[in-house]
Nucleic acid binder design. Structure first.
Length: 491
RNA sequence: AGGGAAGUGGCGCAGUCCGGUAGCGCACCUGGUUUGGGACCAGGGGGUCGCAGGUUCGAACCCUGUCUUCCCUACCA
């Protein structure tokens, strides 16, 4: 057997790329920095999307859609916002091609220059707030709770499948409120929804926290984040929720009359998660055999592989398998039956492990005679013989257990790789030797944060919410500090 | 943008130093035997060697130019 995957310990980046490509989630595309999401990867995204979408709607949000193009002038209305995105925007300057008069292919028609260039949205705050201006007049129009599922483009220098691509899919929520308190509540509520999704659906423990000024979203007053630990000990920002204050309302002149007929600017939030979640899922759980999907999101939860012994057994086995698959589906389980006769069982076993299917059932004549199936769980690799009597309940319970075990395992890994450190030397050696999360004191100044980043490549991932207050001395400067913050190297 | 490497069937590569008309593994197609951990045998199809010039009787190989991609540094969901 030739080696299929690079091992985690050998080369973490290559391992990750192999998982995506060979696990069939995505491919590189003809366009630099962009990727093709393949059906298997997209099915995973759809499961994520549908789950999140329901959570958004359960909290009163509605979906809408805004244009992909943003007039250049919109971007200059909020100073910090431009600053943050200007360097990575794709710009549309022309609207027509023509045949090259000098022969050859087509060229941009110089006559067809746009009067005002259009930016391909890197995020939609500006075009949305320009619209909200016309939607909001009175406190009766508030709150405005809108989400959009869309693609955005950020012209990054270096890309990485799912984690950082030039174009990516995401959802972005944009809300408007009458009071700051209400907007802050919304910001926190959406952060909690993201955390719940990460932990209960992705089986990925996250730390909720607030970003420091340096790491804040361009144009936000406060940026909240969920940070997850990947298996190489690095941090990944998995979702953000921003309290935007009145910044965008002021930039786009969005005002409303309150009950006392007083005019005020609205208070805003925005929040988003992207296809990066797929990258997070892959890096958080997979092993050297391939992907490991949490049952709640896995496009296929159970694969049934028949084991034939000569052509006469096929009919007998297939009949029994259809029956079992029917029972499982009846119990709401997503089942695939692989009775493709062109590949052998051993190949299928390896393939579904690569794809991360949580449960595999193998069924041969031997099993049918004993009224059992061989059941293997992907997360631990354990195999056992299960009675076919009430198999739908047994498998249902098993899926629940796998979901739970995956979370427990990831949480344990995070705990083992999170340390409290109080001196600079240990901080540096620890980052090199055993990457992970470090809880350390910081004097609260952007300068110190910047200096630490420069020296160690570690950034403050967040100031955890409900953080324990504790007197201490800054890891770098020795200045007084009131609490520990979360440091890590990050993706 | 600065430094490093690579472009050869669908994928991964060898061949380049030393020029002689393209090969290996996987995948694919046909037939057969198989099927409880990535099967085996036999036969078969597919590449103007990134592109453009040049040197030469002759270029994947030498020379010049050019384009592209990947890796390492700064930004980011």
């Amino acid at each position: 057997m030739s080696k299929v995957l690079t091992s985690r310990s050998e080369n973490y980046s290559e391992w990750y790329n192999d998982l995506i490509l060979k696990g069939g989630l995505a491919d590189y595309s003809a366009v630099r920095g962009c990727m093709v999401i393949k059906p298997r990867g997209f099915a995973l995204w759809e499961n994520m999307r549908d789950t999140l979408d329901k959570m958004f709607k359960d909290t009163g949000h509605q979906n809408a859609y805004f244009p992909i193009f943003i007039p250049k002038s919109f971007l200059s209305k909020e100073a910090a916002h431009v600053e943050g995105f200007a360097k990575e925007c794709a710009v549309v300057t022309h609207y027509r091609l023509m045949n090259d008069p000098n022969g050859g292919g087509v060229i941009v028609d110089p006559e067809a220059k746009l009067e005002e260039e259009l930016i391909v949205r890197p995020t939609s705050e500006t075009i949305i707030w320009n619209t909200y201006k016309t939607w909001v007049q009175s406190y009766r129009d508030l709150p405005l709770l809108i989400n959009q599922w869309a693609n955005v483009v950020r012209w990054e220098m270096r890309t990485r499948l799912f984690l950082r691509t030039t174009e990516f899919l995401w959802q972005e929520g944009h809300t408007a409120h009458a009071t700051a308190d209400e907007a802050i509540f919304e910001t926190r509520q959406m952060l909690d929804i993201y955390a719940k999704f990460a932990e209960e659906w992705m089986a990925m423990p996250v730390i909720r926290g607030v970003k420091t000024a340096n790491e804040r979203f361009a144009g936000a007053v406060d940026t909240y984040t969920i940070e997850a630990m990947m298996q190489d000990g690095k941090a990944l920002q998995a979702g953000t929720s921003h309290f935007l204050g009145q910044n965008f309302a002021k930039a786009f002149d969005v005002t409303f009359s309150d009950k006392n007929n007083q005019l005020d600017f609205v208070w805003a939030t925005s929040w988003g998660v992207s296809t990066r979640l797929i990258g997070a899922l892959v890096m958080a759980h997979s092993d050297d055999k391939g992907l490991v999907m949490p049952p709640k999101l896995a496009p296929v939860q159970v694969v049934i592989v028949p084991i034939y012994k000569g052509p006469d057994s096929i009919e007998k086995i297939d009949g029994r398998i259809r029956e079992i698959a029917g029972k499982l589906r009846g119990a709401g389980i997503r089942v695939k039956v692989d009775n493709d006769d062109t590949s052998r069982p051993g190949w299928k076993f390896a393939e579904y492990e690569l794809q991360g299917v949580p449960v595999r059932m193998a069924l041969g004549l031997r099993d049918i005679d004993n009224n059992v199936a061989e059941v293997a769980r992907r997360d631990s690799g354990e195999k056992a013989s299960f009675s076919l009597e009430g198999i739908e309940n047994t498998i249902g319970d098993l899926l629940v257990d796998i979901q739970k075990s995956m979370f427990t395992k990831a949480a344990k890994f995070r705990e083992e790789n999170t340390r409290k450190i109080d001196d600079w030397e240990t901080f540096m050696t620890s980052l090199e030797a055993t990457p992970g999360f470090i809880l350390a004191h910081w004097d609260g100044t952007p300068e110190t944060e910047e200096k630490i980043k420069e020296l160690s490549k570690a950034t403050i991932r967040c100031i955890p919410l409900d953080n324990e207050q504790e007197e201490g001395k800054c890891i770098l400067t020795g200045n007084p500090s009131k609490q520990r913050v979360l440091f890590a190297r990050a993706y």
